[in-house]
Design a protein around this nucleic acid. Structure first.
Length: 595
RNA sequence: GGGGCUGUAGUAGAGUCGGUUACAACGCCGGCCUGUCACGCCGGAGGUCGCGGGUUCAAGUCCCGUCAGCCCCGCCA
């Protein structure tokens, strides 16, 4: 039989007790981290979200509570009354925040018992993630995850305070909304009242926040769940949280300025790190040229060098053919890496093949010149020129990639990131921000044989590029911007089209006919005709920001109840089959599973 | 849809070349212990080697399939 809470009132949290409370009578409640039974004396480490404090139970002080403590096991829920006392000489534990004191218990209550937990809730035990996810409520008792979620709360609070101070108003938008073409696969929700019709869960509140600008709210924000039915990754969950913002009467510099302030505030509050402003800015074209990717990690150099024109006339056919065929030949210099083993080089080659590269040429720069399978194809002048543009010195490892521009950039850019990690150049407490701007507005989808929006269909082109919409739409750049932190895209947005004519032209370019545009987005097009202000916005991935703030390698470590890579919940067992009656009410019949 | 890694007591691991009864640690249970703090000492219980099939005199070990977790490609405006 458990003890009743009765009139016991907690006075302190365990982790808050220090020398300041010495002499105070206190009452604490929490979970038993560990019991140490010395036959006579019993020590209990009692844990709550703030930390751990030691209870000392002496039979000479109170026999009843000592006897009760003999029954106590790990994870029992216990309340203790007693006096905060300095620990005897020589028994202070400097590893604990509360290590100078202990509670001399005079009354102990067992508020609830616990089965032996399936795994030890200490910092030393590594447990398989499927076990942790099944017993998520236990895993969440551990200090690491408690800390992550408490910091998440602090960040959300900071976001609300900052945006409020900047004149933003938090407005909720519908979760049951309309499925629209473009973008990610929607999660669908069948409508019972309108049999055969479906809502979609929002991929983002994009259209609604634009409508709020038309409504004159001027500045909107929302910390909001978004849903995308796509495959998961270490930093991607099917439901995730955005810090969603939209502003009226602004250009993109205004948006970036306000948002830099938000990010700086978050880092100051959460980590005590002061981000220097303004943040770096890089055009999309320059990002690709120097780093191969549009989300460069600026914590280290290893920049890519375009050598296409320098190898066009070389005897090395692989390079020369690519160079003359519209491809790209790029290189990077891994300083001091000529000691890489054959196996390491093979691994790097395998790595770039993941991104479609056919191979990777490498050169070890030695005192006797190039040591490389491709050295023989280059004459003295060419060697000298390449050494010069790549800043090659003895001990360096040069790597070359020749392919289509898309593959060469992506593969070598990813290799650059891979090397940065491998060489230990990516400190987690080093924070390098960069805005990437001037993205292309459109990209050609060879399969669908039409243009698709790089950002989304409501993104405004650069004003100077509007004529290109008619002459060469693929060349038009967008008033879009991504915020990249340490190689991770943590946010992105754009100035929107507020002119109905431009928006219609945009749909035309995307191959969305007038009728279809009216059917899918008519409410937005109508709204643009009723005095839509110039506006733009941005959305940050709160989960990704939290990953970086906490140093988590997985997005699951910053979400209370995450899903597995197959989008299931091991705790609740979602998704599951539903009763036939439910399907009947919805007018749904399941198709036979195709094998 | 594809590539890769992992799967052995409650937990996390070892298990050699296929060969007797599958090991030790932590946890758990019992006993002892009045200054420990990942307490210590003594004793004990605990196994569908993920699952299914195959090869073999013999499979945790080799082969095929499958399931689950993780990482990646595709996908993610």
């Amino acid at each position: 039989m458990n003890d009743k809470l009765g009139n016991w009132k907690r006075t302190h949290r365990c982790g808050d007790l220090t020398a300041h409370q010495i002499g105070h009578d206190v009452c604490v409640m929490g979970w038993v981290q560990r019991r140490r039974d010395h036959g006579g004396l019993i020590f209990i480490d009692l844990r709550d979200r703030e930390g751990i404090v030691q209870l000392a139970l002496d039979p000479d002080r109170d026999l009843a509570s000592h006897q009760k403590a003999e029954q106590v096991r790990n994870e029992f829920v216990v309340a203790a009354r007693g006096k905060v006392s300095p620990r005897p000489e020589g028994t202070v534990n400097p590893k604990m925040k509360t290590g100078e004191v202990e509670i001399e218990v005079t009354e102990l209550a067992i508020l609830n018992r616990s089965e032996t937990p399936p795994f030890m809730l200490d910092e030393y035990t590594e447990v398989a993630e499927n076990i942790r996810l099944k017993y998520r409520y236990l895993d969440l008792r551990r200090p690491a995850l408690q800390g992550n979620l408490m910091m998440r709360h602090l960040v959300a609070k900071t976001v609300r305070n900052y945006l409020d101070s900047q004149g933003f108003i938090e407005v909720e938008t519908p979760v049951l909304t309309k499925s629209t073409p473009e973008g990610a696969r929607d999660y669908l929700v069948p409508s019972r009242v309108n049999t055969g019709n479906f809502y979609a869960l929002p991929q983002s509140p994009q259209l609604f926040k634009q409508l709020l600008m038309v409504s004159g709210f001027d500045r909107y924000f929302q910390i909001v769940k978004c849903f995308r039915d796509e495959d998961l990754r270490a930093d991607r969950q099917p439901e995730f949280t955005q810090i969603d913002c939209e502003l009226s009467f602004v250009d993109r510099n205004d948006v970036m300025d306000v948002m830099e302030g938000l990010i700086a505030k978050i880092f100051h509050e959460a980590l005590g790190v002061d981000v220097s402003l303004p943040m770096a800015r890089l055009s999309y074209a320059e990002a690709l040229d120097r780093f191969g990717v549009d989300n460069p990690d600026l914590r280290f150099g290893l920049e890519l060098v375009d050598i296409t024109s320098r190898v066009a006339a070389s005897q090395f056919k692989v390079f020369a053919d690519v160079a003359s065929g519209g491809g790209l030949v790029k290189a990077l210099n891994a300083k001091g890496c000529s000691s890489f083993s054959r196996k390491e080089l093979d691994d790097l080659t395998d790595f770039v093949k993941i991104y479609g590269a056919k191979g990777l040429a490498w050169v070890k720069v030695t005192e006797n010149g190039w040591q490389s399978p491709i050295a023989k194809f280059f004459n003295e002048a060419e060697l000298a020129e390449l050494n010069q543009v790549l800043d090659a010195e003895v001990g360096d490892l040069l790597m070359f990639m020749a392919d289509t521009p898309a593959v060469a950039n992506e593969a070598l850019g990813r290799l650059r990131g891979h090397l940065g990690h491998k060489l230990g150049l990516t400190r987690k407490d080093d924070y390098k921000f960069v805005w990437v701007t001037d993205f292309p507005l459109l990209e050609w989808d060879g399969e669908a044989r039409r243009h698709v929006a790089v950002h989304h269909p409501f993104t405004a082109p650069l004003e100077e590029d509007i004529p290109l919409l008619d002459s060469d739409p693929g060349k038009a750049r967008a008033q879009a911007y991504d915020l990249v932190l340490n190689g991770s895209e943590i946010g992105g947005g754009s100035i929107r089209i507020h002119d109905q004519a431009v928006q219609s032209r945009m749909f035309e370019l995307l191959g969305i006919g007038q009728d279809e545009a009216q059917e899918k987005f008519g409410f937005l097009l109508d709204a643009l005709n009723f005095g839509a202000p110039p506006h733009g916005g941005i959305a940050f991935g709160l989960d990704r920001i939290m990953m970086i703030l906490t140093g988590a390698d997985s997005i699951r470590d910053v979400i209370a109840f995450p899903k597995t890579q197959k989008a299931t919940c091991l705790l609740s067992d979602a998704p599951n089959e539903v009763a036939d009656k439910q399907l009947q009410e919805l007018g749904i019949r399941l198709r036979a599973q195709q094998k």
